[in-house]
């Protein structure tokens, strides 16, 4: 729950003023201003969550985005039940709540006139977790890019593998990376954009495999969870640990790009791609 601003809170028409509290600097920002600023804090530049569709609108030229594989969704193949109930009930509820069938939106379109395929993860759907359906859409996106010789962009925003699918979710790491491997072999560019948060099995698969890795400012990006590491070493970690800035310093991302500049940055980079 920590990372996203509920859309309905913002949209709800109300006579009262609505304020969004920034997760980073705790400033209260008027909701209209927050939205106009693309869910980015005007005080500290913290990038809050946006929906996959909002992101598609920001990246692709108006009216150019064509969704692909929208029919794909999860199944409860393990009949997984935990304390709070069944996985099936949970994903059905998430489908209704988020208005999407999986934790990723896949499609193709034009970015400042350049054709590209994108898979955009959506944190509202089960924390953007990587399930079989998620992995399938990301792989199919790669296959589509391969077939049409278009660059492939994946926006990651995920807590990691989806536990309720057991090892099947772990195997999505290998499944998606086999798609990346095919793109590598055919020299089709693959760009990974890491959004707050990108952790666990998603970071340890396609999200780190971009020919170019881009991050949004202050995004938390890491493999092991902060709490797990603190327990292992028995001390508190510095604040900037596992941030986009930390990864840039350690050589794992190429650039940190503001949300408002992302479209132009992507098209600028992609303009260097000469299709053989």
């Amino acid at each position: 729950m920590a990372w996203f601003i509920k859309d309905e809170t913002i949209k709800k028409p109300s006579s009262k003023s609505l304020w969004v509290k920034c997760k980073k600097c705790s400033s209260h920002v008027y909701d209209v201003e927050w939205k106009e600023n693309l869910n980015v804090c005007p005080i500290c530049n913290f990038h809050g969550s946006i929906t996959s569709r909002q992101r598609a609108d920001l990246i692709f030229d108006k009216g150019s985005f064509n969704e692909l594989f929208a029919n794909i969704g999860p199944v409860d193949s393990l009949k997984f039940v935990d304390l709070k109930g069944s996985y099936k009930d949970k994903f059905e509820e998430n489908k209704k709540k988020a208005g999407i069938n999986e934790a990723v939106l896949t499609g193709h379109g034009k970015i400042n006139g350049i054709k590209a395929v994108a898979s955009i993860m959506d944190f509202r759907f089960l924390g953007g977790s990587l399930g079989s359906g998620t992995g399938e859409k990301i792989l199919q996106g790669a296959n589509f890019a391969l077939e049409h010789k278009m660059p492939y962009i994946v926006f990651s925003e995920s807590g990691g593998a989806r536990m309720q699918e057991g090892v099947l979710s772990l195997m999505q790491m290998a499944k998606t990376c086999s798609g990346v491997a095919k793109l590598n072999k055919k020299n089709i560019p693959f760009i990974s954009v890491l959004v707050n948060p990108t952790t666990g099995g998603v970071t340890a698969s396609y999200a780190m495999m971009g020919d170019i890795n881009i991050a949004e400012p202050f995004a938390v990006i890491g493999f092991a969870g902060r709490r797990v590491i603190e327990q292992t070493i028995g001390e508190k970690l510095p604040d900037d640990f596992q941030t986009a800035e930390y990864l840039l310093e350690h050589g794992f991302v190429d650039a940190i790009v503001n949300r408002k500049d992302m479209k132009d940055y992507l098209s600028n980079v992609l303009s260097y791609y000469n299709l053989k």
Binding site: N71, I72, G73, V75, G135, M171, Q172, K175
Partner: peptide, 12 residues
């Protein structure tokens, strides 16, 4: 082998 891993539905 890896493309076939996992179970998902296609009738959404």
């Amino acid at each position: 082998k890896y493309a076939a891993m996992g179970k998902f539905s296609t009738d959404n």
